Deep mutational scan, measured.
Amino acid sequence: MATVKFKYKGEEKEVDISKIKKVWRVGKMISFTYDEGGGKTGRGAVSEKDAPKELLQMLEKQ
């Protein structure tokens, strides 16, 4: 499965596409929420050019 690499609050993070719950576009950025486990929801964003094609496909399906 594909992963998304991004920075959040200065920390490098990587999340599996299957854990992503919601995806939306903000200008040229793709924002998303994902399941961190333990009932927590994380947030992240990547630029449109750095987003994996699976993430862009999720955006188109909504």
Rank of each mutant, 00 (worst) to 15 (best):
R25C: 14
E36F: 11
F32Q: 00
S31M: 05
A45G: 05
G39R: 06
L59T: 11
K40M: 13
I30R: 01
S47I: 11
I17A: 03
K7C: 15
E12I: 09
K61M: 08
K9D: 07
K53G: 12
P52G: 05
F32L: 06
E11L: 04
K7D: 03
A2M: 15
R43F: 10
S31L: 12
F32R: 00
K22T: 14
M58V: 08
K9L: 13
E14H: 04
Y8G: 02
V23K: 02
K9F: 04
L59G: 04
S47M: 12
K19S: 09
I17G: 02
A51S: 13
P52T: 05
E11K: 05
F6D: 01
R25H: 05
Y34Q: 00
K9N: 09
Y8V: 08
S47V: 06
K7Y: 10
G37C: 15
M29L: 07
E14G: 01
T3C: 08
G42S: 09
V23A: 11
R43C: 15
L59K: 03
V15T: 07
P52N: 04
K40P: 11
T3P: 02
V4W: 01
L55K: 00
I17K: 02
G37I: 09
K5H: 05
P52Y: 02
K49W: 07
L56N: 05
A45F: 14
G38F: 08
Y34K: 00
G39Y: 13
M58K: 04
F32G: 01
K53N: 11
F6Q: 00
A2P: 11
G42K: 08
G10S: 03
R43E: 15
E36M: 12
F6V: 02
F32D: 00
E36Y: 07
V23Q: 03
V4F: 03
S18Q: 11
E11T: 04
Y8I: 05
Q57S: 06
M29A: 15
V15G: 01
R43M: 07
S47Y: 11
K28L: 10
D50K: 12
Q57G: 07
L56E: 13
G27D: 15
K13Q: 04
K61N: 10
G10I: 01
E36V: 11
G44F: 03
K49C: 15
E54M: 06
K61I: 14
K21T: 14
M1L: 06
K9E: 07
E14S: 11
A45D: 15
L56S: 05
D16Q: 14
K21G: 13
E60F: 11
V23F: 07
R25P: 03
D50E: 09
D50N: 09
F32T: 00
A45H: 12
A45C: 14
A51F: 03
G42M: 06
L56C: 15
G27A: 08
R43G: 07
G38L: 06
S31Y: 06
W24F: 06
G10Q: 02
I30Q: 00
Q57C: 14
K61D: 12
K49F: 11
G42H: 11
Q57N: 11
G39S: 12
I17Q: 03
K22V: 14
E48V: 09
F32N: 00
P52W: 01
K9A: 06
D16Y: 13
V4S: 00
S47L: 14
T3W: 02
W24V: 03
R25V: 07
M1C: 13
K53C: 15
L59S: 09
V46I: 08
E11Q: 06
E14K: 03
A51D: 02
K9I: 02
T41F: 15
K7L: 14
G42Q: 08
V23D: 00
L55F: 06
P52L: 04
K49H: 12
V46Y: 01
T3G: 02
E11Y: 06
T41I: 13
M29D: 11
Q62P: 11
V26A: 11
V4I: 10
G39C: 15
T33V: 05
D50G: 08
E36C: 12
E12M: 08
K5P: 01
L56F: 06
E14T: 07
V15M: 02
I30A: 03
G27R: 08
T33K: 12
K61C: 14
D35P: 09
R43Y: 10
I20V: 05
E12H: 07
K7P: 04
S31A: 14
D50I: 09
E60M: 12
M58P: 02
K13D: 01
K53D: 14
K19D: 12
I20C: 04
K53V: 12
W24L: 04
R25M: 08
E48Q: 06
D16K: 05
Y8N: 04
Q62Y: 03
K61A: 13
E48L: 04
T3M: 04
K9P: 01
G44R: 00
F6L: 02
K40V: 15
K40E: 13
V23M: 08
A51V: 09
G27C: 15
G42T: 05
E12K: 06
K9R: 09
G10T: 02
G10H: 03
K19N: 12
Y34E: 00
W24M: 04
I20M: 09
K5M: 02
K49A: 12
T41M: 12
T41W: 14
M58L: 13
G39I: 14
D50P: 03
K40H: 15
S18C: 15
I20F: 08
G42P: 07
D50S: 08
G10A: 02
W24Y: 04
S31W: 11
D16R: 12
E48P: 05
R25E: 04
K22L: 15
E48D: 10
G39L: 13
G44V: 03
E48T: 06
K13I: 11
V26M: 12
E12P: 04
G27Q: 15
K9T: 01
D35I: 11
M58Y: 11
K53P: 08
F32S: 00
Y34A: 01
Y34F: 07
V46W: 01
E11R: 05
G27M: 14
G27T: 11
E54R: 04
K9H: 10
M1V: 08
I30E: 00
M29R: 08
S18A: 07
A51K: 01
M58W: 05
K5R: 10
G38Y: 08
V4A: 01
S47R: 13
V15Y: 01
R43P: 07
V4T: 01
K21L: 15
F32K: 00
M1E: 07
K21W: 15
E60T: 07
K21Q: 14
I20E: 00
K22D: 14
G44H: 01
L56I: 12
E12L: 13
G42I: 06
K22W: 15
D16M: 12
K49N: 08
G42Y: 13
A51Q: 03
